[in-house]
């Protein structure tokens, strides 16, 4: 079978209830958005095949988890073997940003990766379309500062509804996950191609807009 030599990347999507995890995933995989999404129970997952730098087919397996805190207890089982963790918050609700800290810690605790400080995360600030951005509760600057503190996590502002930046964000997720599978590359170099390519320069670079 064709898929026998597939490169399989396991991605976990975490964040508070209602921030749009399922919508982001569906927009990315099926390029559709509908308002009838149901709250996820346990975990759902989708797969997407993609090419990265002309490399053979990569299968991205995205696990979309329930935002409900009580499901944390099942985390160990779901997070096992993850290559990347995507954190999602709603830019219009402060609390969903504040709990990122908990999700981050919880993931590392439960997934227990070999090098927790190197484990790749990507942060998505979703629902930037709402009220044309006038109802934002968390600024892009605040979010980027948090990312910097967490070891330069790549950050994307997205709208699952408007299909804004979703493809870009998940491509970065795939590259990040792939890098984690192989050798440690510089994540920001891969995701932000307009940024100068030498590592030393990149280190100096204040990370600007992702898109």
């Amino acid at each position: 079978m064709l898929i026998s030599d597939r490169m399989l990347l396991k991605v976990i999507v975490l964040g508070d209830s209602g921030v749009g995890k399922t919508s982001l995933m569906n927009q990315y995989v099926y390029t559709r958005f509908n308002k009838q999404y149901k709250a996820t129970i346990g975990a759902d997952f989708v797969t997407k095949e993609l090419h990265i730098d002309d490399k053979p087919v990569t299968l991205q397996q995205i696990w979309d988890t329930a935002g409900q805190e009580r499901f944390h207890s099942l985390g160990v089982a779901f997070y096992r073997g993850a290559d990347c963790c995507v954190l999602v918050y709603d830019v219009n609700i402060q609390k969903t940003f504040e709990t990122l800290q908990t999700w981050h810690e919880e993931f590392l605790k439960q997934a227990d990766p070999s090098e927790p400080e190197r484990f790749p995360f990507v942060l998505l600030g979703n629902k930037v379309d709402i009220n044309g951005g006038t109802s934002r509760a968390v600024s892009e600057k605040t979010a980027r500062e948090w990312c910097a503190l967490k070891g330069n996590i790549p950050y994307f502002e997205t709208s699952a509804k408007e299909n804004y930046n979703v493809e870009e964000a998940f491509l970065c997720v795939a590259k990040t996950a792939l890098a984690n599978e192989h050798q440690p590359l510089d994540v920001n170099e891969m995701c932000f191609e307009r940024i100068p390519t030498t590592i030393s320069e990149n280190d100096q670079q204040e990370r600007s807009c992702a898109c």
Binding site: K38, A39, I41, G42, A66, G67, R70
Partner: peptide, 8 residues
């Protein structure tokens, strides 16, 4: 309340 399907 547990967000795991009571609504369903």
């Amino acid at each position: 309340y547990v967000q795991a399907g009571m609504n369903d």
